[in-house]
Design a protein around this nucleic acid. Structure first.
Ligand SMILES: [Mn+2]
Ligand SMILES: [Mn+2]
Ligand SMILES: [Mn+2]
Ligand SMILES: [Mn+2]
Lengths: 219, 219
DNA sequence: AAATAAATTTAGACAAGACTAAAAATGTAT
DNA sequence: ATACATTTTTAGTCTTGTCTAAATTTATTT
């Protein structure tokens, strides 16, 4: 249907649209995709010709419905493959992204349906990110950054904002994983570090850590 | 490492080398890949520059060691993915080829190792074709075409020569599957059709069928 | 051995995607 | 409002992979 390159552009625009609701700049896309703005301009013209994006010179780009549906399908594939890699092949959550970047471009509706079934229709990927259904709708889940919780709050770890390998490995090393219970014990005014309890372990985490971990509060 | 296109050429040459031991013609490659001989010539020059094939103008092409190893790796991936699709995702053996054609180009040593492990290190794919190991060595198994067996011979179905969907569906419909026992009951001189026993069912098959089914004889 | 047929390569063109350098548009500071 | 800086687009080039048509080489006949 679409080339790998086109799919990567669509996906990137989809993600950047949250941040830049009234039009994504070619530079923003170029930065994200490690390419040049001139290359982006070329591609925007092509995607526009195919009615996948609304592109007005000098005014950035937004996805058309057709483009948004295509983007959601790619994200669905990416995240389902990530679940597969972690659940079935014992990859760790910091290793799956690169491979999923390739697998997301495999074209086969039936393959994805069967993969979805094998994985028991997961709603979230290994990083806690929502997996859209076949219609492109994303499941929603209340979540808040650990850094925004007040002392005493309890919850469950449900996602990460930063998905870099170094952050994920830090979490592994310190026994923080999705699904584990968490409680804020203390907050330090000076550097915004926190003392937290993960399951039954007490741990001190910096502001940088706390602002990249999503929690679903339990009350 | 190599582009999808380069990999497809290498794989095709590998397969055609059995048939044309002393050099595969550009036309043979073009026919197989549904492309034009002139495109093949272009690619042969590129592959030759990369020391993947030996190419002499007008004299056909053979794989270099480097090219043969690369080809085996691609075939390994293709066949492992086919096993995965059938064993884990319940694809039928006539549906897997197209998808495997795409999956074989995914680049990740670790992915294939882990897939191999998940599948319990299979030696043969759903069509009975051998899966090379990491070093590029293919397991061997004695097999002979059903059409070459004499009356009374017994064996096990171990592979198919024709992997077309129509042939595989015919086998499904008539209860012929890899692993099942088979015995030749009668052979008709006139049209070379045979009466065979599959497990406990008796069946009449044409020469065309018999010459596309591989049997491992049991005595 | 020359003539003809078939296979193969070359020449020239095209599309997708990407890059660099230059031009044009937009935004900001005086 | 004008000058300067930044962003974005355009123009021109390159690589990969493909094609058609023409030229060349090899194979087959007479
Ligand atoms: Mn990812
Ligand atoms: Mn993810
Ligand atoms: Mn196959
Ligand atoms: Mn196969």
């Amino acid at each position: 249907m679409f080339s790998d390159s086109e799919e990567n552009y669509l996906k990137t625009i989809f993600h950047l649209e949250r941040q830049f609701k009234d039009g994504v700049s070619t530079n923003a896309i170029a930065d994200q995709m490690q390419t040049k703005a001139s290359s982006v301009t070329d591609m925007m013209k092509r995607l526009s010709d195919k009615n996948l994006v609304n592109y007005v010179k000098y005014q950035g780009v937004t996805l058309c419905d057709k483009g948004r549906i295509a983007a959601a399908a790619i994200i669905r594939k990416h995240r389902l493959w990530e679940v597969f890699l972690v659940e079935k092949l014992d990859f760790s959550w910091d290793e799956v992204h690169e491979v999923a970047e390739q697998l997301e471009h495999i074209e086969s509706e039936e393959l994805i349906d069967k993969l979805d079934k094998l994985l028991n229709y997961p709603k979230f990927d290994p990083h806690g990110d929502p997996i859209p259904n076949k219609d492109g709708n994303f499941p929603v889940r209340d979540k808040v950054l650990l850094s925004d919780l007040s002392i005493g709050s309890k919850g469950i770890c449900v996602g990460v904002k930063d998905t870099s390998s170094s952050f994920l490995k830090y979490l592994d090393k310190n026994g923080i994983a999705l699904g584990k219970s968490i409680q804020v014990l203390e907050k330090e005014d000076f550097d915004h570090s926190q003392k937290i309890k993960i399951e039954n372990e007490v741990l001190q985490v910096s502001q940088q850590i706390a602002s990249n971990l999503y929690i679903k509060t339990t009350h």
